Measured scan of single mutants.
Amino acid sequence: TTLHFDLDGKKLQYTGVSEEIARLVEELKRRGVDLKEIVRILEELLK
């Protein structure tokens, strides 16, 4: 799965993300978590 974000005018793309992580990101968005925080979490998970 590939995730795309537009953060402060920067286009971020994460490829090869598992379905689980993609679902987690969608859930965080639904809960109103700040996009910067979501990206920070995502980068930690993908290390």
Rank of each mutant, 00 (worst) to 15 (best):
E37P: 01
K10Y: 11
L35R: 04
G9R: 00
E37V: 07
E37H: 07
T15C: 05
E26A: 14
D8F: 03
K11N: 12
L28K: 04
K11W: 12
F5D: 01
Q13A: 12
A22G: 15
K11G: 07
I41K: 06
I41G: 04
K29T: 14
E44H: 12
L45E: 13
V39R: 03
E19K: 11
E44K: 07
K10L: 13
R31G: 15
T2I: 12
E37C: 04
E44Q: 09
G16Q: 11
L46S: 04
I21H: 15
L12M: 09
L3K: 00
R23P: 02
K29H: 14
E20D: 12
R31M: 12
T1P: 06
A22Q: 10
R40K: 15
I41P: 00
S18P: 12
T1C: 04
Y14R: 00
E20I: 05
L35C: 06
I38E: 00
V33T: 15
Q13M: 14
V39S: 02
G16M: 07
T1V: 15
K47I: 10
D6P: 00
E27A: 08
V33R: 06
G32T: 03
L28Y: 10
L35G: 09
L35N: 10
I41A: 09
R30G: 15
D6M: 07
L42E: 00
T1Q: 14
L42R: 00
Q13P: 02
D6G: 01
T15Y: 09
Q13F: 13
L24G: 08
I41F: 08
E43W: 02
D8I: 01
Y14T: 00
E19H: 14
K47T: 10
L45Q: 11
L46V: 06
L7R: 00
E20C: 06
L12G: 01
F5N: 01
K11I: 11
V25Q: 01
L35A: 09
E43D: 12
E44W: 07
K47A: 13
E26Y: 09
V17D: 01
K36C: 04
Y14F: 12
K29C: 12
L12Y: 12
T2Y: 04
A22E: 10
A22P: 02
G9E: 06
L3V: 08
F5C: 01
L24W: 08
T15H: 13
E37Q: 09
K36T: 14
V17E: 01
L24R: 15
V33E: 15
I41D: 03
K47G: 12
T2C: 05
E26Q: 10
D8S: 03
L24T: 15
L12E: 04
K36S: 11
Q13E: 15
L28S: 03
L24N: 12
H4G: 05
G9D: 09
K11T: 13
D8A: 04
E37I: 07
D6F: 09
L24D: 09
D6I: 07
S18D: 06
L24V: 11
T1D: 07
E27H: 07
Q13W: 09
D34L: 08
V17I: 09
V39H: 05
R40V: 14
E43N: 08
R40E: 08
G32Y: 05
L28D: 01
I21W: 07
G9L: 02
I21R: 02
G32A: 10
L42H: 00
E19C: 04
L35F: 06
L42S: 00
V17F: 02
T1Y: 15
L28T: 02
L42Q: 00
L35K: 07
V39E: 01
D34V: 10
D6A: 02
K29I: 14
K11M: 11
R23T: 15
E26H: 09
Y14V: 04
L3E: 02
D34E: 13
A22C: 11
L24C: 07
T1I: 15
E44N: 10
L46M: 08
I38L: 08
S18Y: 02
K10W: 08
L7W: 06
I38F: 00
I38A: 02
L45Y: 10
E43P: 02
V39I: 14
Y14C: 01
V17T: 02
R23F: 13
L46A: 03
L7I: 14
E27L: 08
L12N: 02
E37M: 07
G32Q: 11
E43C: 00
T1F: 15
E44T: 09
R30C: 06
V39P: 01
L46F: 06
E37T: 07
R30L: 14
E27D: 15
G16E: 08
F5V: 04
E26I: 08
K36Y: 09
K36I: 12
K47Y: 14
I21Q: 12
D8V: 01
R30F: 13
G32V: 04
E43S: 06
E20S: 13
L35I: 15
S18C: 01
I41R: 09
I21M: 10
E19T: 11
L3F: 04
L12R: 02
E19W: 12
V17H: 01
D34A: 12
E27Q: 07
R23Q: 14
G9Q: 02
E26L: 14
V33L: 11
R23L: 15
E26P: 01
T2P: 03
V25N: 01
L3Y: 03
E26W: 08
K11D: 13
L45F: 06
K11S: 10
G16P: 03
I41M: 09
L3R: 00
D34I: 10
G9M: 02
L28G: 02
L12P: 01
V25D: 00
R40L: 08
V25P: 00
V33Y: 09
E43I: 05
T1L: 15
E37G: 05
Q13S: 14
A22R: 10
I21D: 10
R31H: 10
L35Q: 10
K11A: 11
L45I: 09
L28H: 08
K29N: 11
E44L: 07
E27K: 07
H4P: 02
I21C: 03
D34W: 05
D34R: 05
T15N: 13
E43K: 03
L42P: 00
K10I: 15
V39T: 04
T2A: 06
E19N: 11
E19R: 08
L28Q: 06
E26C: 05
G16V: 05
L3A: 01
H4Y: 12
K47H: 12
K10N: 11
K29Y: 14
D8T: 01
E44S: 12
E27R: 07
G16T: 04
V25K: 00
R40A: 12
L42G: 00
H4Q: 12
D8M: 03
Y14S: 00
L3P: 01
D6C: 05
Y14N: 00
L24H: 15
E20Y: 06
K36P: 09
L3S: 00
I21E: 04
D6W: 09
L45S: 12
L24F: 09
Q13C: 06
G32I: 03
K47Q: 12
I38V: 11
E20Q: 11
K29Q: 13
K36Q: 13
L45T: 11
L7T: 03
I41E: 07
V33N: 06
R23H: 13
D6L: 07
L45M: 14
R30A: 14
Y14G: 00
L7A: 04
E37L: 07
F5S: 01
H4D: 13
T2D: 14
L35E: 13
K47M: 15
E19A: 11
A22W: 08
L12H: 08
E44G: 08
V25T: 05
K36A: 11
A22H: 09
R40S: 12
E37N: 07
K47W: 11
K47F: 11
A22S: 13
Q13R: 05
V25A: 05
G32L: 08
R30E: 11
R30H: 13
T1S: 13
G9Y: 02
E37F: 05
K36L: 10
K36E: 11
R30P: 00
E20H: 10
T15Q: 13
R30V: 15
K36D: 08
E26F: 10
L42N: 00
K10Q: 10
G9C: 02
Q13N: 10
H4R: 05
V25L: 06
K29G: 11
L3H: 02
L35W: 03
Q13K: 13
V39W: 02
T2E: 08
L24Y: 14
K10V: 15
T2W: 03
D6S: 03
Q13H: 10
K29R: 14
E19P: 10
L45C: 15
V39F: 03
G9K: 02
V33A: 07
I41S: 06
E43R: 03
L46Q: 04
D6V: 08
H4L: 11
G16C: 04
E19L: 09
L46C: 05
G9T: 03
K47E: 09
A22Y: 13
L28A: 06
E27V: 08
V25H: 02
E19D: 15
L28F: 10
L3W: 01
K47P: 09
G9H: 03
V25C: 03
L45K: 11
E27F: 06
E19Q: 12
I38M: 04
G32W: 03
T15K: 08
V33H: 08
E19V: 12
K29M: 14
D8R: 00
H4E: 15
I38Q: 06
D34M: 09
E44M: 09
L7S: 03
S18M: 04
R23E: 13
R30D: 14
K36W: 10
T15D: 11
R40D: 10
L7M: 10
I41H: 08
V25I: 11
L7G: 01
G16W: 04
R31Q: 15
G16S: 06
R31D: 15
F5H: 01
Y14P: 00
Y14L: 03
V25R: 00
L35D: 11
Y14H: 01
G9V: 01
K29A: 14
F5Q: 01
T1A: 09
K47N: 11
R31E: 15
R40H: 11
L46Y: 05
V39K: 03
I38N: 00
L45A: 15
L42Y: 01
L45N: 11
L12D: 02
